[in-house]
Design a protein around this nucleic acid. Structure first.
Lengths: 143, 143
DNA sequence: ATAATTGCAAAGCGTTTGCACCCTG
DNA sequence: CAGGGTGCAAACGCTTTGCAATTAT
């Protein structure tokens, strides 16, 4: 139980740091995301909460995830058409390695693209504001 | 007119090479894609064809794009949630530089990621099947 | 000739929204 | 206690599908 209590206050802090109200539903969504090692769709989180007996409306799950995404607490990945996947993310700049089979996601912390980006910016007269990299493959377990 | 006729036979060949029937609708979709310098959604292509007086059903546009994607004639980009973008693509491997203002897309042919990817593959025991890079910025015209 | 392709309209699916009620701060 | 948050159900937008008519080979 101590673990759960600790986790709850962690999540509460995460919300308060961004000036967001700590409601039962938001804490539940954060906890579901913390449990889920991979990315999850809004629907999956909704189902996960329902199974645990945490009654949270589907609309609230969507609203909460959008809110958390706006505040940089979760990342939204669009690697599937017609569905957004959300994921509790580390702080720094990073990219994602996704398994095409099991959808496991690994965070890649080192990013060697800066030199390349600078060259691209000069060549095409763009001022670069951001970049996303998504690497797809099959993980060892699925092979 | 000679240009159009030439383009038409180009498109016809593209279909026949894959064993696909060359219907008026498929040729029209290919021609719309050839005209469009950036990526386009099925809806946009539908609208574009309607404006030209080429009557093609929306369902047919979707079916045609899916078919062309299966045969590697077009690439599907999922950079927007809830919408698939299609794009007639060059042969080689490349990435996209997108202007956040005007949505202009520039193809980037040089990709220096191979070394990095190989390291990633080894470190995480993945067999890499693909990767996408999307660089966002503001182009010279919009600045 | 005949099997594939198309158009239409209806259904499907994930997501968003309007509004009355509820709860946090 | 005031204003944000929530739940419900209806609305939405993009995409897919069933089926009869059409068309390419």
């Amino acid at each position: 139980m101590a673990v759960t209590v600790q986790a709850q206050s962690d999540e509460r802090l995460k919300l308060e740091r961004h000036g967001l109200r700590a409601t039962r539903q938001r804490l539940a969504v954060l906890q579901a995301l913390a449990t889920e090692p991979n990315d999850a769709t809004a629907q999956e989180i909704y189902g996960c909460l329902a199974k645990r007996g945490e009654a949270v409306g589907l609309a609230t799950v969507y609203r909460t995830l959008a809110l958390l995404n706006d505040h940089g607490v979760v990342d939204a990945l669009a690697h599937r058409p017609g569905e957004l996947c959300y994921r509790l993310c580390g702080e720094g700049h990073h990219h994602h390695l996704v398994c095409a089979e099991c959808h496991r996601v690994v965070e890649l912390d080192d990013c060697d693209l800066d030199d390349w980006l600078e060259r691209v910016a000069i060549t095409h007269a763009f001022s670069i504001s951001g970049h996303t990299v998504e690497v797809t493959g099959i993980c060892a377990d699925c092979r």
